[in-house]
Computed example of a mutant assay.
Amino acid sequence: MQVLTVLYPEPTDRAAFAEYYRSTHLPLCAQLPGVQDITYALDVCEPGEGPYYAIFRATFADEAAMGAALASPEGRAVEADVPNYASGGAIVIPHAAESFPLG
């Protein structure tokens, strides 16, 4: 499995970030070809108490699928949209992941 993790430092306006992120950016992410799962968290830390405000995670079958998704028109639209809400920037971490069986 290939994972795209995005860490968002504290934005200028948390409410504006959350509104735009949920109503505009996440629907764009959902259009990525081959995306299998999307999870996210906002308000990860209280203002001034941690380095990140939000975390995003999208999973793909493999590295090739993620690469194709990010290179697609939908992937370019997702990337171009980031400055519209992420005033604190974004740290993008593509990586492989393995599952650990429980029980």
Rank of each mutant, 00 (worst) to 15 (best):
P9G: 06
P9R: 06
P9T: 08
P9I: 08
T12Q: 08
T12V: 08
D13L: 04
D13A: 07
R14M: 09
R14N: 10
A15D: 15
A15T: 15
A16K: 14
F17H: 03
F17R: 02
A18H: 02
A18V: 02
Y21P: 02
Y21T: 00
R22Q: 07
R22T: 05
R22M: 02
R22W: 02
R22S: 02
R22N: 05
R22Y: 01
S23C: 02
S23I: 04
S23P: 01
S23F: 04
T24H: 12
T24W: 05
T24E: 12
T24Q: 13
H25P: 11
L26M: 15
L26R: 09
L26E: 08
P27R: 13
P27V: 13
P27G: 11
L28H: 04
C29Q: 10
C29Y: 06
A30C: 03
A30K: 12
A30F: 04
L32K: 07
L32F: 11
P33G: 11
Q36S: 15
I38R: 05
Y40V: 00
Y40R: 00
L42D: 09
L42G: 02
L42V: 06
D43Q: 07
D43G: 11
V44P: 02
V44F: 07
C45I: 04
C45E: 15
C45R: 09
C45M: 09
E46P: 01
P47Q: 14
P47C: 11
G48R: 01
G48I: 03
G50N: 08
G50C: 07
G50S: 09
P51K: 05
P51N: 09
Y52E: 03
Y52L: 04
Y52M: 03
Y52W: 12
Y52G: 01
Y53I: 02
A54G: 12
A54C: 04
A54R: 03
I55V: 14
I55L: 12
F56D: 08
A58G: 10
A58L: 11
A58I: 05
T59W: 04
F60M: 11
F60G: 13
F60I: 12
A61D: 11
A61N: 06
D62T: 01
E63G: 01
E63D: 08
E63F: 00
E63M: 00
A64Q: 08
A65T: 12
A65S: 13
A65G: 10
M66F: 10
G67F: 10
G67E: 13
A68P: 03
A68Q: 14
A69H: 13
L70E: 07
L70K: 07
L70I: 14
A71Q: 10
A71E: 13
S72R: 04
S72C: 03
P73W: 14
E74T: 11
R76N: 06
A77W: 13
V78F: 15
V78Y: 15
E79Q: 13
A80E: 15
A80P: 13
A80V: 14
A80M: 14
D81M: 11
D81P: 10
V82G: 05
V82F: 11
V82E: 11
P83M: 07
P83Y: 08
N84P: 01
Y85P: 00
Y85N: 02
A86Y: 06
A86Q: 06
A86T: 05
S87W: 05
S87C: 09
G88K: 03
G88L: 02
G88T: 07
G88W: 00
G89P: 09
G89N: 08
A90Y: 01
I91F: 01
I91V: 06
V92L: 10
V92M: 10
I93A: 05
P94R: 13
P94I: 14
